[in-house]
């Protein structure tokens, strides 16, 4: 017989006028190998079918199921109940717009971010159908992939006090996404152009080094090193450009 788990879950349906946020308590028998995907699915199917949460891939690849699990931002699909106490509190991720219960709108947030920062490969060259691909060092490909593999779940943003203090700050996920393009030799933007996007208080110089991002990243991305890399690259450009400008002036 498994433990009896108690779930205190944040409930709020913003589309019902006059409704107020509340905490609803559920009980569930723990089963072997149970994770929060299994648990929440059962709660919905067996106890309250209106309970809203987001799962898609249930294997930590799609980034849908970030939530505060006993206060900490985690992916629900890769959190075993056996690693938690019998009392489990579930809250939606902060920062993002609440859609209902545990469901938040990370999609719109990241879409706006990508549009704002131009998070796609900028190239002016047309594709030649019959030409062989351009060569690339495998090491470069792997370094790009290391930044590329962020799944934009939003846990790093929820874990960053600076994001809570300053809504325009794009956070580790936003900065790391741009690192991916800076590392890519196929992208034609110069460092100066990245500086325009990132070289401010809302970009890399808004980071206070709290490291909540790295400590709470479900994919174990090396965020500290990626952020330091971009900070140095942009600082070098920022300083040298201001000198040349003074020289010319």
């Amino acid at each position: 017989m498994g433990r009896r788990l108690t779930f205190d879950i944040f409930r709020y349906n913003p589309s019902v006028p006059g409704s107020t946020p509340r905490i609803q308590t559920f009980q569930l028998e723990e089963t072997p190998g149970m994770n929060l995907f299994v648990a929440l699915t059962r709660l919905r199917e067996e106890q309250d079918p209106s309970l809203k949460f987001d799962f898609v891939c249930r294997m930590a690849l799609c980034g849908s199921c970030g939530m505060l699990i006993n206060g900490r931002p985690r992916l629900a699909c890769k959190t075993f109940t056996r690693d938690l106490p019998a009392q489990i509190n579930l809250f939606p991720l902060p920062v993002f717009k609440l859609l209902g219960d545990l469901s938040v709108d990370t999609g719109t947030w990241f879409r706006n971010l990508a549009l704002k920062t131009g998070a796609w490969l900028h190239t002016s060259r047309a594709f030649e159908h019959d030409a062989r691909e351009e060569r690339m060092d495998n090491e470069t490909a792997l370094r790009i992939y290391e930044a590329e593999r962020c799944i934009e779940c939003g846990c790093c943003l929820a874990a960053c006090a600076k994001v809570h203090l300053q809504k325009e700050f794009i956070g580790a996920a936003g900065i790391n996404r741009l690192v991916r393009f800076m590392l890519d030799p196929r992208d034609e933007r110069g460092v100066a152009q990245y500086f325009e996007v990132l070289g401010s208080e809302n970009g890399i110089y808004g980071c206070m080094g709290l490291m909540g991002c790295e400590d709470n990243c479900p994919k174990d991305l090396p965020l500290q090193l990626q952020l330091a890399y971009i900070r140095r690259r942009l600082a070098a450009t920022g300083v040298s450009r201001s000198q040349t400008r003074q020289g010319k002036g």
Binding site: L121, R132, D137, N138, D184, R186
Partner: peptide
């Protein structure tokens, strides 16, 4: 090859 042009970091 076209997706390589769009940024997919294919292993080399």
């Amino acid at each position: 090859r076209q997706t390589a042009r769009w940024g997919v970091p294919w292993s080399r």
